[in-house]
Design a binder for these strands. Structure first.
Length: 215
DNA sequence: GTGTCGATAAACT
DNA sequence: GTTTATCGACACC
């Protein structure tokens, strides 16, 4: 595939546990009204559908909020949380199998000035690592809105492209203590030694194992 | 560097 | 009425 072509639906139409690590090192691109924004994905989590207690679709739950997860892969699932923040996921798996990959952090590459403004931060050497080092920070920096939930991410203004080969580590998922044993499953993936991962992720990664991703 | 805590409202039961 | 796939401020080390 040409490096500038958006990752296609076949890329996303696989189990979330395969797509989540494969998205590490890929470029997230948003041609926003304020200009082109891009960054390299450095932290993801897999949400495995009806058998995953941490998933919104656990035991087949199907609501207006998570409806997009039940549709075809390669669409955005964006929803508000804690009354103030947004979470950005990409639907994976076959249609009717509500899986997804949660995008938790990115290394900003283009449009840093727009991102800093959107985050209410001054742009300097010290702030770049903080622009998108968390799920909701990433949504703010990349100018994602809840109206974009359901959007096709295989060809529109918001999409992914090929990026870099990276080494990654795994650890448990964050913020899902309600999910019991599943909270300890190693379904979070982080680019090894990245300074752009979320703070909580960096800590948990210390106890995880390193894996080399093939080219 | 670490840990605790409150904000805040949509979506859920 | 309760929960929540978070963040930033603050205290403390």
């Amino acid at each position: 595939m040409h490096p500038m072509m958006p990752l296609d639906r076949n890329f996303f139409a696989r189990p979330a546990l395969e797509v989540a690590p494969d998205l590490l090192g890929k470029m997230l691109i948003h041609h926003s009204p304020e200009g082109m924004l891009s960054g390299m994905v450095v932290e993801t989590e897999a949400y495995g559908g009806i058998g995953d207690p941490a998933s919104h679709a656990f035991r087949g739950r199907r609501t207006s909020r998570n409806e997009v997860m039940w549709g075809p892969a390669g669409h955005a699932y964006i929803y508000p949380i804690y009354g103030m923040y947004l979470c950005f996921n990409v639907v994976t798996g076959d249609e009717g199998s509500p899986q997804g990959v949660f995008i938790r952090a990115a290394e900003p590459r283009q449009g840093l000035d727009v991102m800093a403004k959107a985050r209410g931060m001054a742009l300097n050497d010290g702030s770049v690592t903080k622009l998108a080092n968390g799920p909701s920070k990433l949504c703010m920096a990349f100018r994602l809105t809840r109206e974009m939930s359901g959007a096709d991410v295989t060809g529109g203004a918001l999409h992914f492209t090929e990026g870099e080969d990276v080494e990654f580590v795994t650890s448990s998922r964050i913020g899902i203590d309600y999910a019991g044993e599943a909270a300890s499953w190693p379904w979070r993936f982080l680019v090894k030694d990245s300074r752009f991962v979320s703070r909580r992720a960096a800590r948990a990664a210390l106890t995880s194992q390193s894996t080399t991703k093939g080219a």
